[in-house]
């Protein structure tokens, strides 16, 4: 469970998030909203990569604090950019992060298979197409089987087949007690397996709840 209380993020005079309060239950939540509505900012705050101006976030009752190694190790985050080292191959990137998270090499092969990256495993990340970079980024985020998965536009630049691989990987990862928040414009893709949704507009949370209860049509 993620508890967000009175969250406000300001960049100078620009208010990116304002008075966001929500409880995000275990399961997969879609995060929707137009460009500039604060989706990426909210994910970065949830990951602890950005400090809010005011407000708090609790993950399973624990206040998000980047100093906590244990908490960091429970978060899987894939942002707008790939988060990979361009000069390293996909395999080398995943092996590096597997080592940093103390995950076995078997898990690297699993993720490469799940995200259908086999024929690009030996390709330097910088030479990958945008779609393959997205898939590799999702693989990296899922590598250590996190309790909290935060994906920012995981379907960007993906064809239908690749998008399906991403959805399948998230569904395979899904388990009791774990929380995923997936920010996307491709609401239909997420709706297939999401339990709830949040809609942001101009930094404010305008709708939040389960798909049935919230009543919004992505």
């Amino acid at each position: 469970m993620i508890t967000i209380e009175g969250l406000r993020v300001a960049y100078g005079r620009t208010i990116a998030l304002d008075s966001v309060t929500a409880d995000i239950a275990p399961g997969v939540s879609g995060l929707f909203g137009p460009n500039g509505s604060g989706k990426s900012t909210l994910l970065r705050v949830l990951a602890g990569l950005l400090r809010p101006s005011t407000g708090t976030i609790r993950i399973a009752g624990e206040v998000v604090d980047m100093k906590s190694e244990q908490l960091r190790g429970r978060i899987g985050y894939a942002g707008h950019r790939s988060g990979l080292y361009g000069r390293l191959t996909v395999m080398e990137n995943l092996e590096l992060f597997a080592r940093l998270y103390g995950t076995g090499r078997g898990r690297v092969r699993d993720m490469i298979d799940q995200l259908d990256l086999r024929d690009r495993a030996r390709t330097p990340a910088v030479e990958l197409s945008a779609g393959y970079q997205r898939r590799a980024a999702v693989a990296r985020a899922l590598l250590h089987d996190p309790d909290l998965l935060l994906l920012d536009e995981p379907y960007a630049n993906l064809d239908d087949e690749a998008a399906e691989a991403v959805s399948q990987a998230v569904m395979t990862w899904r388990r009791a007690g774990a929380v995923a928040v997936i920010a996307t414009h491709g609401a239909k893709k997420v709706k297939r397996y999401a339990d709830s949704g949040l809609i942001l507009q101009r930094g404010r949370l305008i709708r939040h709840g389960t798909y049935e209860a919230s009543g919004f049509t992505p």
């Binding site: 960091r72 985050y77 950019r81 790939s82 988060g83 990979l84 992060f97 940093l100 103390g102 910088v126």
Partner: peptide
């Protein structure tokens, strides 16, 4: 370059 700093900062 590709936002790897975010990935790195989350490493335990």
């Amino acid at each position: 370059a590709d936002g790897a700093i975010d990935s790195l900062l989350l490493v335990p």
